[in-house]
Amino acid sequence: MKKSIHGVILSLLLLTLIGCNTQGAEVDEASPFYTGEITIVSGSSIHVEGKSEVYDSPEFVFHTDDNTAITNETNDTFSIVDLSKGQKVLVWVEKEAPVMESYPPQVTALKIKVTN
């Protein structure tokens, strides 16, 4: 009985870990989650003031991780340290990404594209 319970728990844990992998996740270029201007770059996060078609908040904090792609309009790649206040960005997040209900709201970015 204990072996079957351990097997079920291990299987659920494995499925959860597989489901959390965002590497290689596709981005719908036509539908960014948020559009705006960077107001603060802090560590591995950016604060952006702007708007979203799906979320009502005048500003957002986007965290970055190893899976976050940062590019420009010609698809040159960048690091978070290359971003600066005043840059205009489009931001995509994973389709069902959990948004922290703080003010401003926070979520991990899947892709950030600098547009100026």
Rank of each mutant, 00 (worst) to 15 (best):
V93Y: 05
V93R: 13
T68N: 10
K111Y: 08
E53S: 15
L14M: 14
A97P: 13
K3C: 09
I46N: 00
N75L: 10
E49G: 04
Q87Y: 00
A30V: 04
A109M: 03
K51D: 13
T39K: 09
I46T: 01
V91R: 01
V99Q: 00
E49P: 10
E37A: 11
A109T: 01
N75K: 06
K85F: 07
D66F: 12
T39P: 05
T16Y: 13
K51V: 10
G36N: 01
Q23P: 06
L83D: 04
D56E: 07
V81P: 00
L110T: 01
G24S: 05
I80W: 02
E94K: 10
L90I: 02
I18S: 11
D82A: 13
G24M: 08
V48S: 01
E49S: 14
E73L: 13
G43R: 03
L17Y: 07
S4K: 12
G43C: 05
D66Q: 15
T77N: 05
F78M: 08
P104A: 00
A69E: 15
K2N: 13
S79N: 09
I38Q: 03
D65W: 06
H63N: 06
N116F: 05
H47L: 08
G50Y: 09
I80F: 01
M100R: 07
S45N: 12
N21P: 05
V81C: 03
F33T: 06
C20D: 06
P32C: 10
I38N: 04
M1D: 11
P105S: 02
G7N: 14
L110F: 10
V27G: 04
S45P: 04
I9Q: 12
K85C: 04
T64R: 03
D28E: 13
G43F: 03
E101G: 10
K51C: 09
P98T: 15
S57L: 01
K111L: 15
A30P: 10
L90D: 10
K95R: 10
F60M: 15
I112D: 04
S44F: 05
F33R: 06
A97Y: 08
S4P: 11
A97G: 07
Q106H: 02
N67S: 14
T74G: 05
Y34S: 06
S31N: 15
T16Q: 09
E96G: 12
A69Q: 14
I46E: 00
D82F: 03
V93D: 07
K51P: 07
K3D: 13
D56Y: 06
S44I: 11
G36I: 04
F60D: 01
G86P: 12
I38C: 03
N116V: 00
E37M: 15
V89G: 00
L110N: 03
Y34H: 01
H47Q: 05
T71H: 01
E26K: 15
F33Y: 13
Q87L: 08
L17F: 06
E96M: 04
C20M: 11
T68K: 03
S44D: 15
E59S: 14
M100G: 06
D66K: 11
D66I: 10
V8C: 11
G19Y: 14
K95T: 07
L83G: 01
M1R: 04
I112T: 13
G7A: 11
